[in-house]
Amino acid sequence: MLEARDIHFAYRPEAPILSGVSLALAPGELIGLSGASGGGKSTLGRIMAGYLHPGRGSVTSGESMSGWSPVQYLHQSSIFAVDPRWRIGRIVEEGWQPDEATRQALGISRAWYDRYPHEISGGELQRVTLLRALSPQTRYLIADEITAMLDPITQADIWRLLLARCEAGLGILAISHDAPLLARVATRTVTMQSGKLL
C-alpha cells in the first residue's frame, strides 16, 4: 500500500499548495485524480514518488526505497524527465532491459534508439518514459497526464497495456482531466481542489 498521510506542502508559506491530503493506493488499484489546473495534483504525485518532500505528513510504501524506486513518476512534460544529451536507446535502458512485447505494445520503434529526445515527437517521448518506468520492480506508477498528448488510437493501446499491468498487481495513480477516460479505466476517482481532496 502506497500511503500519503496528512500531506502539507508550500513553496512559499503564504501560498500553500497542499493542505492536509491523505490518499492510499493499493496494489492492483487504479485511482483517477482529477481537478482544476493549479490545484496541486502533480505536486501530490511528486510527493508520493519521493521527488518532493512534504512540509508536514508522510509517505510510506512498505517497499525498500534503495536502488530503483518502487514508485515511478511519469512527468506530464516528458522532455523534463530525460537527459537531452542521451539518445533514446540509453534513456529506455536506464533502469532495465525492456522486453520486446512491452516495447511493441507501446508502439516504440527501435529506429528511435539512435535519436535524441528533441528528434522524436512529444507523444513518442511520452511513451519512451513510460517504457522506462515499467520495470518489473515498479510497484506503483504515478501517471501524470500521460496520454494527454496522444491520439485516441494510441491512447487506447496504452491503456489496454496499463490495465493488464494493473490486473497483475501494479498500483496506478492516473492524474487526468479527461473525465470520460477516467470513467473507463479507474477503479475510483478522487477530485482535488485548491490543495484538498474533495
Binding site: 488510437i153 487506447a156 479527461d178
Partner: peptide, 16 residues
Amino acid sequence: RRLWQSMPQNGFLTHA
C-alpha cells in the same frame, strides 16, 4: 473513423 471510434466517449478499447 478509427480515431473517432477509439475515443473513451465512444468504443475506446474495443476499437483501434
